[in-house]
């Protein structure tokens, strides 16, 4: 990995250079909750000032810039007695600025499925390749457990990754295009003093994690606890609403359906993100539902996160952001469920 030092002014220039020719998506404050907490979302910004890199969290992850909630896989034109199919997945290059380490790790997990998996998705690859990623480190929130998962540190999957050293950024460079862009602004080599400062900031961040989960034997434990009452305890609370999967940076399940225009002259094949907690997730033709109750569906969500994905890709799917835990109106969070499994709290 190559490291550089970027001045704060240099960073502003960098953002302005990108803005001259590309769209930038960045955390933006859009409101305030009833309890006074700010609400941030990843949204297009048109100026440096609009970005708020000091954001604490976003309810929604940035995954939908790669896996939109809804997209047309193809469209059809019906003409006389014939029809034509059109597929379009090219997109304009853009930049996402301000992703945390775990959100970039979430993308590298999605890469394993959609870029390097058995069935690569050109839709995903096109978006991923055409997105310039600038990440930024910060101290964790109380409920984030990404350190336990090893997702608090990022080593690839981005173009630039910045650590704030107060009056300058310590920047990790992971791509040619990142290197080239950096060279257009005020950037210099790293000194020993910079390295020292970086290590101190990293230590502070590293020591900031409050929520820990024990992953060491989790896949085996999951197998042993397949019939545990813990699943019922939490499953009984589940509203089967799918909010957890919608905000999760790595959930990628989807359904495909066909739609036809009202004049019957055009059609579209539409992909929409779905969730394994939804009641009909495992309902098949003929009406049989393989996972008819909340408890089973919730269980399989955890099995995919911490066992099934691991089997295919040697790492859990979850990155420990706890977005699912925060969004869940029923108060179901991975740290609590996994703790209960270890401690057999029913």
């Amino acid at each position: 990995m190559l490291f550089k030092i970027l001045s704060k002014d240099g960073f502003r220039s960098l953002v302005e250079i990108i803005l001259q020719s590309n769209e930038i998506i960045a955390p933006k404050k859009i409101g305030t909750k009833a309890d006074g907490d700010p609400i941030h979302q990843f949204l297009p910004v048109t100026s440096f000032e609009e970005m708020d890199l000091d954001y604490r969290t976003t309810e929604y992850s940035a995954k939908t810039y790669f896996l939109p909630y809804r997209e047309n896989l193809c469209t059809f034109d019906f003409e006389a007695d014939d029809w034509e199919q059109k597929i379009a997945y090219r997109m304009q290059p853009r930049a996402i600025i301000g992703l945390r380490a775990f959100d970039i790790n979430a993308l590298t997990k999605l890469d394993k499925v959609f870029s390097k998996g058995r069935f690569p998705s050109p839709y995903y690859i096109s978006r991923r390749k055409n997105t310039f990623i600038v990440g930024i480190d910060r101290e964790p929130l109380e409920d984030e457990f990404c350190q336990s998962i090893g997702a608090d540190i990022v080593t690839h999957g981005f173009d630039l990754f910045m650590t704030d050293l107060g009056d300058r950024y310590f920047v990790a460079v992971d791509s040619d295009r990142g290197f080239n862009l950096l060279n257009r602004v005020d950037v210099r080599e790293v000194t020993d003093e910079d390295t020292q400062a970086y290590k101190e900031v990293r230590k502070r961040i590293q020591n900031g994690f409050k929520t820990k989960i024990n992953l060491s034997n989790l896949p085996n434990l999951l197998d042993l606890e397949f019939t545990s009452e813990v699943w019922k305890k939490w499953g009984d609370k589940c509203l089967s609403c799918g909010s957890c999967a919608m905000v999760c940076p790595t959930c990628y399940c989807y359904g495909v359906s066909e739609e036809v225009s009202m004049d019957f002259k055009e059609g579209a094949r539409v992909k929409q993100l779905y969730s394994c907690n939804l009641l009909d997730f495992a309902r098949v033709a003929g009406g049989h539902n393989f996972r008819p109750d909340q408890e089973t569906r919730l269980k399989y969500r955890y099995y995919h996160q911490h066992r099934g994905f691991l089997e295919d890709y040697d790492e859990p799917k979850c990155v420990g952001c706890n977005r699912c835990g925060r969004v869940c109106l029923a108060g179901i969070s991975p740290a609590a469920v996994i703790r209960d499994l270890y401690e057999e709290n029913v």
């Binding site: 929604y60 909630y69 809804r70 509203l239 089967s240 609403c241 799918g242 909010s243 919608m246 905000v247 929409q272 993100l273 969730s275 939804l278 009641l279 009909d280 309902r283 969004v327 109106l329």
Partner: peptide, 11 residues
């Protein structure tokens, strides 16, 4: 639609 409004709300 078997599922509740939240899903579409989140989307």
């Amino acid at each position: 639609y078997a599922y509740p409004v939240c899903l579409q709300c989140k989307q």
